[in-house]
Computed example of a mutant assay.
Amino acid sequence: MRYLLYLLIGLMAGVAHAAPTSQAYMSIIIDDLGQSPERDSRTLALPGPVTMAIMPDTPHATDFARQAHKAGKTVILHMPMDPATGPYAWHPGVPQDELARRLDAALAKVPYAAGVNNHMGSRMTAQRDAMTWLMGELQRRDLFFVDSRTSAATVAAAQAQAQGTANVSRDVFLDDDRTPEAITHQLHQGIALARKQGSAVLIGHPYPQTLEVLERELPNLTRQGVKLINLQQMIAERSNLAMPAHGKQGRYSNR
């Protein structure tokens, strides 16, 4: 399977996960897409391999997934999980066959999805049995998982790692504070972290302020010693190992 190849490449590269490195990599994911053609188009126009995370219960999900794929961007399913609501949302206590039905329906709404990340999910990603099943199912479908880490109690990445499912975890949220100054600060925090540990995964949203900052700052990354890469490359770079903030010696906590 293609992600096994990515992981082998990453292992052969001997990635450093704590020591400062001369080459720093960054991946950026924009969540909550599919709601507004104007914001979606502006996000799609961002320079470089920015990942488009599309919600299934939005009016433009399918059309935008096709548009983003045609533009050469990585598309992922932004899967609603408790406390998110709606017809696709996963909640604790929902039977496994219903979880499977909702996953199938969500993937059908977001064609060309190469992987999945959680929308909200602070309660759901702490459910060990459900996350174990999900990671096995994603591996069967040759899809990867991005743990948005909306809760310190998440076991999602740990279960992916335990099963060998291709995965990465979010390091920095860009826009919990939506002011341009705060978003710029968070982006610079991501740059510093990438330089320190070799890579950083950032998640933001299609807010006008976030897009304004990224439009201004992304063209400057190379001059700052950071290379923007897609999630498939990040999976290879990290080789399914946890960053220091998420575990010890490459193993995720909450196992």
Rank of each mutant, 00 (worst) to 15 (best):
L241W: 15
T154R: 14
L44V: 10
G164P: 01
I9V: 14
T184D: 06
A130T: 12
L107R: 01
R42E: 15
A13H: 13
S151N: 05
R39Q: 15
S239G: 14
D104G: 00
D175W: 00
M131G: 11
P87N: 06
L231D: 06
E98H: 13
V172I: 15
L193Q: 12
V155K: 03
T58K: 05
Q163V: 04
A108W: 03
I9E: 15
R128E: 15
H69C: 13
M1K: 10
P244I: 00
M79S: 01
K109Q: 07
I76S: 12
Q209M: 10
V213L: 10
P208Y: 07
A182K: 12
R66M: 04
K248N: 15
D97E: 14
P208H: 11
M55Q: 11
L8S: 15
N118S: 13
P37R: 14
A152Y: 00
L46Q: 03
K227R: 10
P95G: 05
R101C: 01
S148C: 01
R128H: 15
Q186L: 07
I54T: 04
R251L: 06
A71G: 15
L202W: 13
F64Y: 13
G10A: 05
L11S: 13
A105M: 02
H119L: 03
N254P: 06
R223N: 12
E237L: 10
Q67C: 08
T222D: 00
T150A: 04
A160I: 08
Q189A: 08
L107Y: 01
L202H: 14
P180Y: 14
R195Y: 01
V50K: 03
G115I: 08
P87R: 14
A68H: 02
R2S: 07
A182S: 14
M124F: 09
E38V: 12
H188Y: 14
A236Y: 06
R195V: 03
A105G: 04
T179K: 04
K248D: 15
A152L: 06
I76R: 07
A236V: 05
T85H: 05
A65I: 07
A24N: 01
P37T: 15
D147N: 00
G250I: 13
Q209R: 12
N167D: 07
L77T: 15
L202A: 15
I54W: 04
I191C: 03
A160R: 05
G10Y: 01
R102Q: 10
A106W: 00
S239T: 10
W90D: 04
A152K: 09
S199R: 13
Q186I: 10
G14Y: 07
A166G: 04
I54G: 02
V50W: 03
Q127W: 06
V213Y: 08
L187I: 13
L134N: 03
N167A: 06
L138A: 12
